[in-house]
Design a protein around this nucleic acid. Structure first.
Lengths: 182, 182, 182, 182
DNA sequence: GATGAATGAGGATTCATTCAT
DNA sequence: GATGAATGAATCCTCATTCAT
């Protein structure tokens, strides 16, 4: 049993090694990366990689899910003292997550396989961002016609800035948010 | 002579057909598209495709150059009556060009081959956008600390909106530009 | 008519230009040379090349035939004063021809198409070399058991020396011929 | 460990099968042979072929190296009882090796990749042939002015005979060697 | 007759995935 | 469970040859 457990531990560790290598590799080379290269960087055989992720697509989805998990965790701890600060904090946390997660940032999606992952993403947006926007409206710190969708698109827009000029997004965020303010 | 010209005309037409098919195909499938598929969609043989564009890279660059040419043309006729309107018009013209040119929008670039094309792009930005920003400052319709780079990044940012929600960019542009206003 | 004649002259000239370019090109790159490259070096269009030589093979055969013609001409004027000198002169003339004709030297032959050309070659060997060998035997300057075939193979052998060390064949010829002497 | 070794054994066998098929194929069709055809004749998939020899060039070089190895092995056991016999034996062993190794015989070489292989070849010539020539001189069985280079060129020359008339080289060797004798 | 654009079969190589060990 | 050798479909590109002008 001890052996079995040890093996399971090793297996889990391998799965993780592959996941990290894949995140790295997809971030650098996009979908074009060679599965062998990922296996190599993970320090495992190609067979091991395929045992854990039977398909390139599934591996990508796994990376995506890990990214999204990191994001939901990061954005669940926004400081809520001030309504405007809370909103800004949420957007900033999202963008800073994207800055570290190229796969998510690049929107690497593949066919319908990634759809569920992104659906979970929208779900989280609705449950966490909506209250913040509502409160901002209540507190009168947001233009009345600005919706949650607008803020979502703001994030989407600034994600490109993150991609192109990784240090410039904070300034652009503040410039743009000025336009959203009441 | 007339004969020779006629042939060239046909050849030129084929080159154009290939270019259009490629723009379409790259826009849909990214760099992964099969050269044969492009040839098929252009209605020419694969050999003809390669006669005009000896490499996949070169074909992509040609598409990029056509996109950029379309953009420079479109942005050279901005209404200059009002400084703010002129600036907005420039950004809007750029974004609407991107909306029709997926290759450019997706920033499909390949190694160093695309670099010159994009360099021309930056060049054009500097010569056309700079005066508009300068005039906006002179006329006092732009926050004093907003630079040409900021406007460039605004375009970059909104290009993502174009990509994700092709009809929403105009509203986002006006929202954001409010923040840039003096 | 003058025009017609002029055109025929031009056509003949083109055929010759192609032949020379082909001889050069095959000599350098073997059969792998691109037909377009030959046309380019001949200064004619690819269509013109194909008008004169409908096939790569046929072009090669034409080059071969020109080579063989040069050889038969060169070897028909051997000095016949002394039987041994005549024999040596014949072999030397052959080898020096080979030294200038890479296509022939490399034995570039292709399928059955080249066979007739080489048959003519053997034919010429029999009609010109045989008498020389016979006379050498009569004059007692050649070992009695040395046949025409032996001399033929001597040529074949030394042709490789010509190929590998273009200046060394004469010495090797004299060394070897010593063994053939009575 | 036993497991790993077994796999390597199979892999090694495949590598060898490919090598032999390639030697055969290059010998018949020169460099023009289709890699797929080689794989087919070896009874392996094209991917397996490429796993062992990542390039057509490298496969050719491998064939060349095997040929050269066979030659060095064959020529290291020459009978040294009599100086003249030893020399003849060396040349004969070389030629009979060539008779079985078309790739080497045809001098199939490709760019600079084959250069090292052939360099090793010249090296071996110098270390094994030189002493034989020296001893022949000492024993007075070789014309004083005949050098190692002459013998080398004799081999080169007769290799063409091997190519053209595979059964005639021995007679030609003896004829020619007579000229080299003291 | 000359030209060169068009054609497409053919050939080298890569890479996702399977499977024997 | 891990490994990596084997597989072959897919893809880029070349080049002999044809044909419209």
């Amino acid at each position: 049993m001890a052996t079995a457990r040890r093996q399971r531990k090793d297996a889990a560790r391998n799965a993780l090694l592959v996941l990290e290598a894949a995140a790295q590799a997809f971030g650098v080379g996009g979908l074009a990366v060679d599965m062998r290269e990922i296996a190599r960087q993970a320090g495992v055989g190609i067979g091991t990689l395929y045992r854990h992720y039977p398909t390139k697509e599934e591996l990508l989805v796994a990376v995506l899910q890990a990214d999204i998990a990191a994001w939901t965790e990061r954005t669940s701890t926004v400081d809520t003292a001030d309504a405007y600060a809370a909103l800004r904090s949420y957007v900033a946390a999202t963008l800073s997550t994207l800055a570290e997660r190229r796969t998510l940032l690049d929107g690497l999606a593949v066919g319908d396989v990634a759809a569920p992952a992104f659906a979970a993403c929208g779900e989280h947006l609705r449950t966490t961002l909506a209250p913040l926007v509502a409160r901002a409206h209540t507190d009168g710190v947001l233009r009345a016609d600005v919706t949650m969708e607008d803020v979502g698109l703001l994030i989407v827009a600034l994600s490109r800035v993150v991609q192109v000029a990784p240090t410039a997004w904070e300034r652009q965020l503040d410039l743009a948010l000025t336009g959203y303010r009441a």
